[in-house]
Simulated assay, not measured.
Amino acid sequence: MNAHYRAFGGFRFALALTVVLSHTWFLTFSERNFIQDIGIGNFAVMGFFVLSGYIISEAVDAFYANRAGAFTANRLLRLVPPYWAAAVVSIAVHWTVTRYGTLKLPDYETPPEVMFSARNFLVQITAIIPVFNFNQFLPRIEWYYFVRFAWAIFVEFVFYFSIAICISLWPIAKRFVSLRTYLAICAMGAIAVHGVNEFVHHLHTSFAFIPYFVLGASLYWATSKRERLAWAIAGACYLLIAFHFTRYTQGQLSAYADWWSGMRKPVVLVPTVIMLAIPLIMLWLSEIELTDRSKLTDSALGDLTYPVYLNHYAVLVAIYSFVAVRSVAAQIAAIVVSLVLSWLLHQAIEAPMSSLRDRLRGKSLIKSGKAPASQIKLGATAP
């Protein structure tokens, strides 16, 4: 099958800008305020997880059935080289500021001693890859990550590896169950792992975010295959997300003491409502038909999403270190420079690899400013 073009590019770009805004408010405000307290970056990142569940499910359905190796290779090519480039740029920024100025970090009073050590550099190479990383073999100390917000990419990889396992096991499972049943078992098994992690015994931090990915995946199967069971799973995940978001990523509410009273506080209620609106917006966008020109624009905005997320921390460190006075201008400068740097790195790193990724996928994506969008039916979300 061919994947339908989904108008997610501009939305993903808006979520990425929301993350950048969340991390740069302190360049404008010297004291905490309501805008900072609601943590707009939290629902943006969680929204990415829901989108990822939808997008990857469609990609697997269209291109990677029985091709776990190709799927994993494509995901590695998509995420790892841009991350390495961002890490190199960030290291260069940190070193330059240290050499010619005074390094100031948003979340450290003084720069960590391990920052420029050989072992800390080694950690950067595989920091976003679960299980197969150098962190497993080095002392368990607080390493400094030059791509500071890369934890979300690590969580994404946990999801990708889980999908690869499901793809690999399907040839065996199909001897006993239908695809519908198999997908339901995978989804409910993932939710069960989340439940154990949250309420029985902590297994791994990344498992807290399982309902976000399963919600996205369930929404794809529910809308594309008209599956009632998928709608039921999506509904269960929707409720789990509402509960999780208030407990862990926003209000830090207790599940056992006056949860409802805390939920009604504006600092918790506002971002939670926005978080719960994101899947609904996503469903609406998935059905929008864009013109060929709009598809190219949407695709171009989507292309910037990942590099913006990766590279804005290095820019933030540079601005924070060299600009003495907080102002709106400093925050705007951080955003603008992040966008320019991200576009340059996208052109230098990601664009040249597109043909290789196309061969792994077996189909071309829309290329901004290149092939007419009408000739390509795949979405702008780079599966």
Score class of each variant (00 low, 15 high):
1 M>H: 10
1 M>D: 08
2 N>S: 06
9 G>P: 04
18 T>L: 13
24 T>G: 03
30 S>H: 09
33 N>I: 00
46 M>H: 10
52 S>A: 12
53 G>V: 02
53 G>S: 00
59 A>K: 05
63 F>W: 10
65 A>L: 14
66 N>G: 06
67 R>P: 01
69 G>N: 09
70 A>N: 15
71 F>R: 00
74 N>W: 04
76 L>G: 04
78 R>N: 04
80 V>G: 02
80 V>N: 02
81 P>H: 10
87 A>L: 06
87 A>T: 13
88 V>R: 02
90 S>P: 05
94 H>K: 00
98 T>R: 08
105 L>E: 01
112 P>Y: 07
114 V>P: 00
123 V>R: 08
124 Q>N: 13
125 I>C: 12
132 F>M: 08
137 F>M: 14
138 L>S: 06
141 I>L: 05
147 V>M: 09
156 E>P: 00
165 I>S: 11
168 S>T: 06
168 S>C: 04
177 V>P: 02
178 S>Q: 07
180 R>L: 07
181 T>H: 03
183 L>S: 02
183 L>G: 01
189 G>K: 10
197 N>K: 04
197 N>S: 06
213 F>Q: 05
217 A>Q: 11
222 A>C: 13
226 R>M: 09
231 W>K: 05
243 F>N: 09
254 S>V: 06
257 A>E: 12
259 W>Q: 09
274 I>G: 00
279 P>K: 01
284 W>L: 11
287 E>L: 13
297 T>D: 06
301 L>G: 05
314 A>S: 13
322 F>I: 10
323 V>F: 08
326 R>F: 06
329 A>G: 13
345 L>I: 11
345 L>D: 00
356 L>S: 03
357 R>E: 07
363 K>N: 08
367 K>L: 09
372 P>K: 06
374 S>F: 09
377 K>L: 09
